[in-house]
Design a protein around this nucleic acid. Structure first.
Lengths: 340, 340
DNA sequence: CTGTTAGCGCTTTCAA
DNA sequence: TTGAAAGCGCTAACAG
């Protein structure tokens, strides 16, 4: 029927219905003050022509050029933590009539920036970013340009005055470490991500702070810069082979945790060396022993962030908020192994 | 500097640079035939003003109204299979200069349709859909409207002439079942998703076909309509409590597999009853016993689908393709338990 | 309640 | 190589 190219426009619909263009616009946008009769004629014409509203054209003339969309920069859409965050934000956005655009930065500054630029070219009404690295001054331009911005999961040194939603990484790491100490451990190892990530720094600080209670009885083994399962596995394997190895391990990130499990298994130490991970992982309760973790709540993180951008989009110009969510220690077995 | 509202436009840039509007357009779109001098003046003005190209306005007048975006309807962005697919498609799209819009249908026809409509209103250049249910005639409208469509992971009865990329579900399920039979099992149970899903039907058919080799020695226990971990867990728990329970289980979907593991663990039968799952799950090798699965390749599925839409967008009008990817049996322990 | 007109920011077409 | 004018599909502002 319709030829492959030109899609029907409001003018076509108006013609077909025998009404004015503006009446079609009113019906499509559900503006009040259209008679039943007119509305029916328009809707019939829309159905007959297979008309589809063009939101690009629509927002062009619309006040503030609102697009009813928000942009989300994640580390990686396929990472379980990121995708849980993604889904939570999607749900809130959809509820409020917004489309969510999401992309993966792979923890790369340049990619992050490219994504932000693409989203801004699409004129998103707001931005939610899990920031990578430390140099976020470019984001100030966007904020000044009038696009609300919310940071999730990590703060940015460069943007202290920006709305931020995060987990209490310091206290979470401290509580996981205390848990190990309370179970008698004195020789602890810490596996951490790259310290360019603010979150990684906070977790290491929490670990060290809890360790201070030992008053120097036992020096920790600290390895950072571990980005992948393989790196964490290799690092811990090496540590376990040392003379006088640690009796407990704190893995500060989910890929590190999985690497640690692999290393312990291979060394046949999974029942001897205690392990607490930061961030929950799927099926953690099905492992033997069950994996004890300091869990974040990505869904709550996402909801709060989404609520916040949407409030800013709606016009709230109050002071920048900093929302900190508590973590939860989930006891499943691996963290309760006592030193031998 | 810039006031909160109006963003600088090409006219502003042209004024600042002292050139014509069209020259700015040429520079922004990297059209050839602009002198060094002019280009520099324009770029300086862009930087000075913090100009950002408006892609909505741009595509309005552009030939074919191309938006350099494609829409993706997934079951759930936070499901591991979906998000692996998502990431693969995102990578291909980005490489080719396309923005990917993704959304979750929750296996709900109405939500799927709503998403497709939203994407079409944004005038995506192409659509990739993991279809839910059976009624996809509405998609024909979009195709006729000129938007290329590719189905992934599942075919649609209503759309036999549409490009489709899927795993060989029948053969995959058959091979997993044969594996159990070869290990001596005669009493098999099948846990499956809702049969409104074509994939679920194909897997059940594959299971039954492999079972035919038994010539009636042993009737299978078949339960379908299992959508969640909890439902699968409950179903298998009930089955295992029967007199003369099955000695092997084929779980035809990852949530069903996880439910099966839980049921077997609780019944203390994880070392007695064999289990093969369809679809790999994270950390499957860290379980005890390791989980034997029939693995799909979501990354390959995604890449092929993305290549296909992009080719259609580029104008390829060849006959509809049906790409079937083989599955892989990954042996890890749970599927090699012999009947007692 | 309905319609008319102007113009959003950009690309196209055509002219210099 | 550069520019002027027209118009994409729609909404805003203002009539009737």
């Amino acid at each position: 029927l319709a030829d492959r190219q030109r899609k029907p426009t409001m003018v076509d619909v108006a013609e077909q219905a025998g009404v004015a263009l503006k009446t079609v616009s009113r019906v499509v946008n559900r503006e009040p003050g259209v008679s039943e009769n007119m509305a029916k004629r328009v809707n019939d014409a829309i159905a007959a022509l297979g008309y589809r509203h063009n939101s690009g054209a629509s927002s062009l003339r619309r006040i503030g050029q609102a697009t009813a969309s928000i942009g989300l920069v994640l580390e990686d859409v396929s990472n379980p933590f990121s995708s849980a965050l993604h889904r939570a934000i999607e749900d809130v956005a959809r509820d409020r009539g917004y489309l969510l655009l999401a992309g993966s930065s792979d923890e790369d500054q340049a990619l992050e920036r490219e994504l932000v630029e693409i989203f801004c070219m699409r004129r998103v009404d707001g931005l939610i970013v899990v920031p990578s690295g430390d140099d976020h001054e470019y984001l100030l331009r966007e904020i000044r340009g009038g696009t609300p911005l919310v940071l999730v999961d990590r703060p940015s040194k460069a943007l202290p005055m920006v709305d931020t939603v995060l987990s209490d990484n310091f206290e979470g790491a401290a509580s996981g470490t205390r848990h190990l100490i309370e179970h008698g451990h004195r020789q602890l190892a810490f596996l951490g991500d790259s310290l360019t990530i603010e979150t990684a720094r906070a977790r290491l600080a929490g670990f060290k702070s809890a360790l201070a209670a030992l008053n120097g009885r036992g020096e920790p083994t600290v390895v950072t810069g571990l980005r992948t399962v393989e790196q964490a596995d290799a690092a811990l394997t090496e540590i376990l082979a040392r003379t006088d190895p640690p009796t407990a391990v704190f893995a500060s990130q989910n890929l590190n945790t999985i690497g640690a499990i692999r290393a312990l298994r291979r060394s046949q130490l999974h029942d001897k060396v205690a392990l607490v991970g930061f961030d929950d992982v799927p099926m953690a309760d099905l492992l033997v022993p069950g994996l004890t973790v300091v869990a974040q709540d990505p869904v709550a993180l996402g909801r709060r962030a989404a609520d916040l951008v949407l409030r800013r989009i709606a016009g709230d110009a109050g002071a920048a908020e900093r929302i900190t969510l508590q973590t939860t220690l989930i006891v499943r077995g691996s963290g309760e192994i006592r030193p031998t």
